[in-house]
Design a protein around this nucleic acid. Structure first.
Lengths: 250, 250
DNA sequence: CATGCCGCCATGTGATCACATTTTTGCGGG
DNA sequence: CCCGCAAAAATGTGATCACATGGCGGCATG
């Protein structure tokens, strides 16, 4: 428990480990939008020096998962309705195209693995397990788009997921209510028929269904994660002894 | 010459200045794919310490403009035909959509500025000025897509430009020969008529026309920027006293 | 009791150092 | 003349330090 390191951690650099952990926490919505993200604080939490944290934060800023404010502090970019619709539009065009381009590489084996992941999604929904829901959902999409091998689409799509991730969790209750139609099943059916157009439609519907209701959430709370300025951005000023942005030490 | 700093350089951090310079040099194809990119070397060239360079390199890796190899060294990702077609496909879907979404914000003033930029493109083509050709071309597209204000599309598109940038220059001679139809004019005409579909078509045609011929270049030189491994990646081992990746000191 | 000012503390930034690893170079043997 | 091995140089990584900036609370004052 002291280290919590997985087997091949030392194969990657510290900054890569920090980056992976932060990225996961952002994607799964474990980091609250207003939360203070300080280099020294995160370094202390993770038990590393400031150096790897700095580089990880820079990388996440480059991926638009984080935002560098004028005061040179880093935060999760506040969400607005306009930005959210923008992100959804980008997700739809990119992911529909990525899915279509993956079609030639779809095998029975892949469909099987997708079905397994879809089952995991459904289980997570039934159990109200937020982390696993988002994680399995991302795994489903990622597995599909990655069927064609490494592609320039993947990092772009991941960047978009990282931007919406922090705001998914708070809309998830709404989703559970509306999640009547299983778009993943429609996508799987399209894959079995090798119907590219139906796949595109299913993907787009899945994206819209899954997160379209965040808009209303946004309207209610009006600009999640602080407004345009730097107000309400900082948590407790001290970096030690609080909840913890990351689960445990690296 | 000693500093070469512009007026408001001190408003930005050193790492941002280094990042901007490296990014520009990559986008304009001034950095050769096989060229050695070492932290200390770049730091010496730019007259800064290693720290800002490290962070800039990390950010460019995140944007996929650079690639982190297994030996932990950084290079411009080698280009293959598959990757190139992938990048073009991503550019088309993203930029066509971005252009369509910009349409409601198109004003006469914007069209005027676009015309000016298009004129700069044509001048650069006539004068065989590679840097200005790419730069003005990027400015044209960027200005159009940015009409709607900040959008999640912009950084994604910029990432794609950064990935193709280093390979544009060597195909530019081919382009000059084929550049008979001015797709920018078609785009401008579509903008004047507020014809979104025509705009999409013009943008797609522009992308295809401008760079589609690189494919043949790739076939001739077969995997630009070294093969799959790490061969031929390094330039002269010493970092000082060579051509210079960046134009001058920061 | 409200308000504005001042000083302290935390934070980001840049530079530098030590160490492990990789790469290059030079030399000896086949 | 070519190949392989060992020494040497170079590079990336992580840690730490000094400094400037900014935010926050305490304190004096009206």
């Amino acid at each position: 428990m002291a280290t919590g390191s997985s087997a091949d951690d030392d194969a990657r650099t510290l900054h890569q480990q920090v980056l992976a952990r932060l990225r996961e926490n952002i994607l799964l919505g474990r980091i609250e939008p207003g939360q203070a993200l300080t280099i020294r604080g995160l370094a202390a939490e993770l038990g590393v020096s400031a150096q790897p944290v700095r580089e990880a934060l820079r990388q996440l800023v480059a991926e638009r998962a984080l935002e560098l404010m004028d005061n040179r502090r880093v935060r999760i970019p506040p969400m607005t309705i306009e930005r959210f619709e923008d992100l959804i539009a980008a997700r739809i065009v990119l992911e529909a195209e990525a899915a279509a381009r993956a079609m030639p590489y779809v095998t029975e084996s892949l469909i099987g693995r997708l079905e397994a992941e879809d089952a995991a999604v459904n289980t997570a929904v039934a159990e109200r397990d937020y982390d696993r829901w988002i994680g399995a959902n991302y795994a489903f999409h990622s597995m599909l788009y990655g069927a064609a091998g490494q592609s320039a689409f993947l990092p772009l799509i991941e960047s978009l997921w990282l931007q919406v991730g922090p705001f998914l969790r708070r809309a998830i209750r709404t989703i559970s209510g509306h999640y009547t139609v299983d778009r993943h099943n429609e996508a799987l059916a399209a894959l079995r028929r090798r119907d590219t157009m139906a796949l595109r439609i299913a993907i787009e519907a899945d994206i819209r269904d899954g997160i379209a209701h965040i808009g209303s959430t946004l309207i209610r709370s009006e600009a999640l994660g602080a407004g345009t300025g730097a107000d309400a951005v900082r948590g407790p000023s001290t970096s030690s002894g609080r909840a913890g942005v990351v689960s445990e030490a690296v």
